[in-house]
Structure formats: structure tokens, C-alpha cells
Design a protein around this nucleic acid. Sequence first.
RNA 1: GGCCCCAUCGUCUAGAGGUUAGGACACGGCUCUUUCAAGGCCGCGGCACGGGUUCGAGUCCCGUUGGGGCCGCCA
Length: 480
Amino acid sequence: MHDATSPRVRFAPSPTGSLHVGGARTALYNLLFARHEKGTFILRVEDTDVERSREELTAQILSAMDWLGLEYDEGPYYQSKRYDLYREAAGRLLAEGKAYRAFETPEELDADRRRAEAGGRAYRYSGAGRAIPPEESDRRASAGERHVIRLKMPAETIIVDDLIRGRVEFPSEALDDFVLVRSDGHPLYHFCVCVDDTEMRITHVIRGDDHLANTPKHVALFRALGAPIPRFAHLGMILGTDRRKLSKRHGAAAVEEWRDAGILPEALFNFLALLGWSPGDDREILSRTEMEREFTLDRVGASPSVFDPEKLLWMNAQYIARMSAEEIRNVVINAPTATAAAKALPPSIAIKAAELHRTRARTLVEMDRALSSYAKDPTDYDPEGIKKHVKPDTPRHLERLARRLEEMPDWSSSTAEATLREVAEAEQVAAAKLIHPLRLALTGTTVGAPLFDVAEMLGRETSLRRLQRFIESVRAQTPA
RNA sequence: GGCCCCAUCGUCUAGAGGUUAGGACACGGCUCUUUCAAGGCCGCGGCACGGGUUCGAGUCCCGUUGGGGCCGCCA
């Protein structure tokens, strides 16, 4: 039996694509489970599919995991480097009569499958290979006849006691003798998984629901291998907004796409953790420590969940709003999507800008855009804003405002505001008549951070230059 | 088609026989306010359906419907 005090779990991606949010969530639950149980989290790369596995995809998955904070304690192990193990296990199964050689060609099997389909029957392998006497099997194999190795599935109902789903029964009629090793000698997925889980002493298999139907195969294999059977926990799938299994065509299904969209790893982690798991109360924003402390499989739901990008964005905004301005500035300029303009902005300005936009940007990309906007004077002004806020008197008012701003003994948000209100009063207009045009002058838009804070941050020189430029631009368009 | 899984607001979820069915996102309104946000307050909105079991079902059982998954010499 397993050492109950120290569970061992694994995440086993196959490098046939980038890291998916579904895979990331599986990895994350394994990690949380391992941390909660003081166990070991292992990474195993399932690269036995020589046709589809690609090395650069492995690197990509590793870097996405690293970015998300999915640290493993052991590995990465590569199945492609463990063929001796599989060969040895296959030989043993064969010798013990738990597996057998089958000599049908892929074409023959294909024909069988089509016949079954045409007849409206469920296809199952005939089991013909079982009847071949061992001596004959050995003789044909050593004569070089191509063959696969199949597992002898027991003729009994297999019961899986799933930690999330409870007891699930699989009648033997639905199971057939599946292939362990291809005719070219390559070991296949189910076989490698069980050999590795055994060798790595995996105690809990936490994986997607899509593997539930494969589990009886694995149980039979563990038994044939004489290995302890791990506990299973099958997670509900992550669905797109159309309620279909989340995939590339939904867009932004890959972890790195979210990274590039300006999502913080902590936010994605938190969001994914809550997609299927709940701490049991109303908390939504949880620290990594809280999650590790509180995560248990009995609080994981069995039903599939729709991935809602809106909520992810909200959560990301929450994380941004909780960071200090310095932190925000740092992550923005170190992000893979950082723009030259944002990087070039003087740190003191960038930090002030980050402070002003902390509750106004939902993503790092938006924050970057906000910071960049202070890097250079606006070249054009929102036409709607001009139409709405620029009146015939406006240039005259702004001229006067500019003079008074220039004379101010000290430049600050409060003095700028006081000055503007004074000018407004002297000109007998509402302060808003000056505020809106001034915002247009300083930022080019009608929306954004508190105007006087923007002015303070920009400084007297820049503010006055932008204001002057705006007055000229307005005068040029509407000659008095 | 066969086998298997799933089913609480549009979405994520709390709920482990007795609740005015709670929270969050989104949406609408109000508030704060120079704008836009953020925040605060209010609102809209749900137990898929049908049978049982029970004094009493969102909670247990069966069925229906709907959705999903697996049935490869892919993973």
C-alpha cells in the first residue's frame, strides 16, 4: 500500500500544443493538492507521440507553467527517455500471459471497424490474438511478423471509486483488449501512463473528466502490472461560452495568450482555482497561501464550468488595484508586451501615472497604454470632445488660465485647481467650461484620471506647452 | 450507435431533508464626482422536466430531456 502520509501526484502534459487553460487548471489542482497534503508534485512530459510531439512546445509549456507559478518538485521526466521501462514491462506482461501479440494489420482492423459501424454495432477488437498459442506467437514474432501487443482485459465489471464522482461502474462488454505497444515498437499512451504512475509511485491521479472513460483500462493495467492502484479524481471539463470543450477556436484558450493580454499570473491562478473549486464561503480573491491551506478535493465540483473571460478581467483588475504603484510600473515595463514608450517614461512619472490608473486599467496592456499616453504630447484631440466642450469663448478663457497657471508660485494639483476655479469665477463661467477643454489639451481625450492630478504629474512646463498647443490648434480650426 | 459523466440566476458558485435559496461576474438604477473608472447602496435574475421516498425535497432514488466525454497501432 501507499505511504499515506505523503501523496505523490503528477501533471502529465503532452507537447502537442501550448499549455491550455484546462491543462493549467489540472496542473494547478495537482499542485494545490500536493501542497495541502504536504506531498510531491511531479511533472512528466508525455512525448511518446513521435508524429505530433515537438520539443519547442515542451519548452513553451514549461515556460507557461513557470509564469503561472506551477512549480513542480520532481521532473520534468520525459517518456521518450523511458522506453526501456516500457519494453521491460511489456515483456513481463507477455511472459505472464497478461498481454498477447496480435497480428492483424491496421487495414484489417479498419475494415472490421467500418463493418461494425455499418451494422450499427459498437466496434470491439475480436480478440483473435488471444487464441494464438504462445509458441506460435513467439515463432511468428521472431520471424519478423509485424504485431502489436494487447492487454487481456478481464471479463468483469471494473469499479472506479472516484474522489469527485463517487463509485462508477464499467461493464466489461464495453471494454476491449486495447493496444499497449505499436507494431513499430512504440509504447502507447495508456501503457506508458500506468508504467510511469507505478514507477513514480503516484498515489492520486487528478485529471480531466475526459479520462474517466479510460480509467477502467488503467485499472486493468495496474492490476496486470501487479501495481497498487492510485486514487482517481476526475475534474469537470472547462467549456467555452458555447458550452463546448474549450479549444483554440474559442480564442485565448492558451495560458500565454492571457499573459500577452496583460493578465497577471496571480489573477489567472486565482481564477482557474475557482473554476471548479470553492473555499466554501464567499471569498473570491484568495492568496496562494490560503488556497494551499484550504484546498481539498471534496470541495471540487463534478460539473463542467464555462470559462468566462469577463470575470477573469474583473479579477485581474482586482489584483492590479491591490498592487502598489511601484509594483505596477515594474510589471508593466517587464511584461513581454511592454511598449518602448512605457519603458522610456521617467520612473517617477510612470509610478504616479500607475497610481492614477490603478483602478482604471483591467489589464497590464491597458495600463501600458495609459502610461505611454503621458510619454508624448497629444497630437490630436477627440473630435467629439472638441465639439462638445470647445465654445467660441474657450480660447480666450484658456489663454487667461494659462497666464495664471504660469504665475502660480508652486505647481500642484490643489493650486492648479484653485487657480482654475478662480479664473472660472472671474470669467463668470462654470469651472467645467474650463476643466473639459483643459483635459482635452493635456490628454487629448475626455476621459481619464483626475485632471489636476494629471497636471501635477505632467509638471508646469509640459502642462503649459500642451495647453498652448491646444489653444493654437483650436484657433486654427475656428478663426475668430 | 454503445458505454460513461454532468445538471442551482446568462456565467462562476454556496447549499451536505426544514434557508425569505446566499455571494461574485455581467446587466440596470442610485450615490460619490470635473470626466472615466474604482468604491458604496439598490435592483433584475435560478433549483431543466416528470415521477417516487418523506410530515417535509434544490438536497435522496428512478426516468425523461438537455449538455459533455470516451469508444485509434493519438494523447
